[in-house]
Simulated scan of single mutants.
Amino acid sequence: MTQYFSDEIAERSSIQLTEEKKADVFLIPSTKEIILSQTNTAECINKPNRSIIEFSQGKSLEAIAYKRFGLSKKQKVKGSNKPIDVILPQQSFLYWNYWNRNGLKDAIKIVIACGIDSIVSRSYQAFGIDLSLEKRESLIQINAKLLEHSQRLEAENTDLRNNDACWAHLNKELKSQLKDLSYGLAEPDHLQAENARLLRILRQHGIDPYSPQNYI
């Protein structure tokens, strides 16, 4: 039997997470509870819906915390004949943060944007000020610029690391070539020493190596 989060029909809206990503949000009218859609939560980081189920079955800190909020239920929403699979905002963030820690760029952007928005909003609320929609949109643009700058720095660092690896390889090759060259330069000395040894042996046997009769 299908379990529903609420018998009511939830109202629908959306929030801007980053410049590129929006999330659908739903409100239960009587309780004012906010819920999200599992499918849309996964789509925000270009993952299939099943990735949330797979994540929730894992043993990461985020997955353990995720399961404390309970199992998924369905919810009827305005504008759709098909009920959504409910996920709480806390669960969505835990899911996104898991992928943030695993280096997924879309998740990194969302987690950074949510973190900055949360701190700024709480700071204003401490003085009894609610952020306007325009202010929040401005924050999103600032976050996007910060992310763009950090990504550019990351790319530059990658180039530098690649250059370091290239120089290390060239240095190794140069040392190898110098070593081979030193062996080559040392060969005449070896030949001279060998000639002297052979001359001593010839003289020990009474042979004058410089006598004309010994030349071929």
Rank of each mutant, 00 (worst) to 15 (best):
I84V: 01
Q91S: 07
P89Y: 04
I84T: 02
F55I: 04
R101V: 10
W99D: 04
D85R: 15
K59Y: 14
K76V: 11
Y98W: 05
G70D: 05
A65I: 15
K73S: 11
I64F: 14
K67R: 14
K82A: 11
N100W: 05
L88P: 00
Q91P: 06
E54G: 08
N97C: 09
E62D: 02
I87V: 10
N102K: 13
Y66W: 05
L94S: 02
F55G: 01
S60P: 03
N102F: 08
D85M: 13
N100Q: 14
G79Q: 08
K73D: 06
L61M: 10
D106C: 07
L104Q: 12
L104S: 10
F93W: 12
V77W: 04
Y98T: 01
D106Q: 12
Y66E: 11
I87R: 00
G58P: 04
Q90S: 01
K105C: 06
Q91I: 09
N97S: 08
D85F: 08
R68C: 10
A107N: 12
N102Y: 06
W99L: 13
K59M: 15
G103F: 00
I108G: 00
L61T: 08
V86P: 00
S92L: 07
P89W: 02
K73R: 09
K67W: 06
I84M: 00
D85A: 13
A107H: 08
R101E: 13
Q57P: 09
I84F: 02
G79P: 06
K105F: 11
K59W: 12
V86L: 08
I87E: 00
K59P: 12
G103V: 06
L71H: 14
A65E: 15
S92H: 05
P89V: 08
I84S: 04
W99G: 05
Q75V: 10
L71Y: 15
L71S: 15
D106F: 06
K76Q: 07
N97H: 13
L94N: 04
R101F: 12
A63W: 04
K105N: 13
A63V: 02
Y66H: 00
Y66S: 01
K82D: 10
P89S: 09
L88T: 07
L94D: 01
K74F: 03
N97V: 03
V86M: 07
L61S: 03
K76P: 01
A65G: 11
A65R: 14
V77M: 02
W96T: 03
F69W: 14
K105L: 14
Y66Q: 01
D85G: 13
L94M: 09
N81F: 14
R101I: 10
E62H: 02
Y98D: 04
L71W: 15
G58F: 05
L61E: 08
P83Y: 07
K76A: 10
I108T: 05
K74I: 00
D106W: 07
E62G: 00
I87M: 03
K105Q: 13
A65Q: 15
